[in-house]
Amino acid sequence: MVRQDETPEGSARLELVDGVSLLHPEDAVFDAMLSGWERQQRGRRLEPDTIKERHRIVRRFAVFSGEYPWRWTAAHMDEWSTSLIAEHGRAKSTIRSYQGAVRQFCDFVTSPHYAWAEECEVRFGTHPVQVCHEWNTAVHLEDYEGDPDRRPMTREEVQALLDYADDRVEAAVRLGRKGALTAYRDATVFKTIYGWGLRCREVSRLDVTDFYRNPKAPELGGFGNMHVRYGKASRGSGPRRRTVASVMPWAVESLEDYLVNIRPRFRHHAGHRAVWLTERGGRLQPREIEERFAAYRDALGMDRELVPHCLRHSYVTHLIEDGVDPKFVQEQVGHRFASTTAIYTGVSTDFTNTMMRRALERAFAAEEETK
Rank of each mutant, 00 (worst) to 15 (best):
R45A: 15
G222D: 00
F364I: 15
I95S: 12
S237V: 09
I343K: 07
T370H: 13
P48G: 04
H140L: 10
G224A: 03
A251I: 05
G10K: 00
G221T: 08
E67T: 12
I95A: 12
W276R: 00
R362G: 12
V324C: 11
G36C: 01
L162N: 06
G10N: 05
K327M: 14
F64C: 02
V2I: 09
F124C: 03
Y164H: 08
L206Y: 05
E291A: 15
V203P: 00
R241M: 07
H268Y: 12
E118G: 07
E369H: 12
H113I: 01
A233C: 11
K92Q: 14
Q40R: 14
H272V: 13
Y114L: 04
V275T: 02
H55W: 12
M226Q: 04
E26H: 07
F108P: 03
A28V: 15
Q99M: 05
R45E: 15
A233M: 10
T82P: 04
R267L: 14
A366V: 12
R177A: 11
S81W: 08
R235T: 10
S314H: 04
N214R: 07
S93R: 11
A294Q: 10
D18M: 08
R45M: 15
V260W: 02
T154S: 13
S97I: 14
L259K: 08
H318I: 02
A359S: 14
V260N: 10
E170W: 13
L259D: 06
R201S: 02
T243M: 01
L220G: 01
P264L: 03
A187I: 05
A274W: 11
G236I: 07
E79V: 12
D167Q: 11
W70I: 11
E256N: 02
E291W: 15
P69M: 00
D49Y: 10
S111I: 02
E331H: 14
E279K: 09
V275M: 08
H24F: 11
E145T: 10
L311D: 04
P218S: 03
R155I: 13
F64K: 09
P215V: 07
G221D: 00
L84I: 13
L255D: 07
A180L: 00
D31W: 06
H55S: 12
F124V: 06
T94I: 10
Y230L: 03
D322H: 13
F105W: 08
Y114K: 01
H88L: 13
G89K: 00
E290R: 14
P128Y: 01
E256T: 01
Y344W: 02
D5R: 09
G197C: 05
R3H: 08
M33T: 10
S111D: 03
D186Y: 07
P69E: 00
E134R: 15
I320V: 12
P25V: 10
R273V: 10
D186E: 06
E305H: 15
V131Q: 03
V102C: 05
T340H: 12
L255G: 02
P48I: 00
P112M: 02
A180E: 09
A251T: 05
